[in-house]
């Protein structure tokens, strides 16, 4: 039936279906220019970048950039931070979202339910800049809320910007805060998708609400949870740059505790201008992300193909 193959087949299909191809063309071109073309820039990791020579003209330097990045310990530090933050954020935000979703679906007061859901969804709509304002508003050592509370209790003001250990929790808090509403919408969708006959049968069997949640709701939303975890694991080496940048800012006291690959790359891009190191970090981030996502997806597919992403 099909006498064409390979590129010839595409040309043939284009001749036949050219209006459809034309409709998809803007997106194809945009994605090519904005996503595929920059991929070639990853070779910068193996080059000694010179602004006047451009990406392709700069001389090669082998693995030097990687060596420098990891010799000083920075490479390990930012990798460790990125992974730790992602794991912490993943668990807290999923746990919270599932909790919120279950309570909201069980709530009987319609008006209160709507209000609560709207309020919890609200943080998703504001920019990280506003979140940065909140952080300033709360922790600012001159006028912040924390200072007011400390004075009220008669203890000396706590300067949170000096306590490294607090920041993983603060970042984790704001991450959950911002995404709780969004993620719980996903879980609410999963819970409302459960066949109500299951609950009715459980009612007849005399199960109480905790048993219904434990034996029906949890097992039913497991595929959703696995998908969410899979998606997050794929991003485990990509920090949410906007969040880190707005909450921490350029606070060099906290680099040890809060620097992730993205903030490191951004800083070297804008301030120190050492593109070699940052390209090496990006290269290693992109490639490792890809490997991890393929690996995890492959494993999940082996265990149960229905849960795999693709």
């Amino acid at each position: 039936m099909n006498k064409h193959s390979g590129f010839g087949a595409v040309v043939h299909d284009f001749k036949k279906n050219w209006p459809l191809w034309l409709m998809a063309l803007p997106a194809i071109v945009l994605v090519f220019v904005l996503a595929y073309m920059p991929m070639s820039g990853l070779i910068l990791a193996f080059k000694n970048y010179r602004y006047d020579l451009g990406i392709f003209g700069s001389p090669w330097c082998g693995m030097d950039n990687f060596e420098f990045l990891f010799m000083g310990g920075t490479g390990w530090q930012i990798t460790k931070n990125t992974i730790l933050y992602n794991v912490l954020n993943l668990f807290t935000s999923q746990f919270l979202s599932i909790f919120v979703a279950i309570v909201i679906t069980e709530m009987t007061g319609v008006v209160y339910k709507k209000i609560v859901q709207s309020v919890i969804f609200l943080p998703y709509f504001i920019s990280w800049v506003i979140v940065g304002t909140f952080v300033y508003n709360i922790f600012n050592t001159d006028y912040g809320i924390i200072k007011g509370i400390c004075e009220m209790m008669g203890v000396p003001t706590v300067n949170v910007y000096r306590i490294e250990g607090a920041w993983p929790w603060i970042i984790c808090f704001f991450n959950s805060w911002k995404w709780c509403g969004y993620n719980s919408v996903i879980y609410i969708a999963a819970i409302t998708g459960i066949d109500s006959a299951c609950y009715e049968a459980a009612d007849i069997d005399g199960a109480n609400i905790w048993q219904k949640i434990g034996h029906i709701t949890f097992p039913s939303i497991r595929p959703t949870l696995i998908t969410m975890i899979l998606l997050q694991v794929g991003r485990i080496l990509r920090g949410d740059f906007q969040m880190f940048y707005q909450i921490i800012g350029n606070n060099s006291n906290l680099y040890n505790a809060t620097d992730v690959i993205d903030t490191y790359v951004f800083r070297s891009l804008t301030t120190s201008g050492n593109l070699g190191f940052s390209s090496a970090a990006t290269f290693y981030q992109s490639v490792l992300c890809f490997v991890i996502i393929m690996l995890v997806n492959g494993i999940v597919r082996k265990i149960d193909a229905d849960y795999a992403l693709f």
Partner: peptide, 27 residues
């Protein structure tokens, strides 16, 4: 449309692998 899956993957792939901040910036 015969190539819809190929095209879908063409788009989807960019969420799996990217050139990163530096190369996007330079481009």
């Amino acid at each position: 449309f015969r190539y819809r899956n190929v095209l879908s993957f063409y788009f989807y792939f960019t969420t799996l692998f990217s050139g990163g901040m530096v190369s996007s910036y330079i481009f």
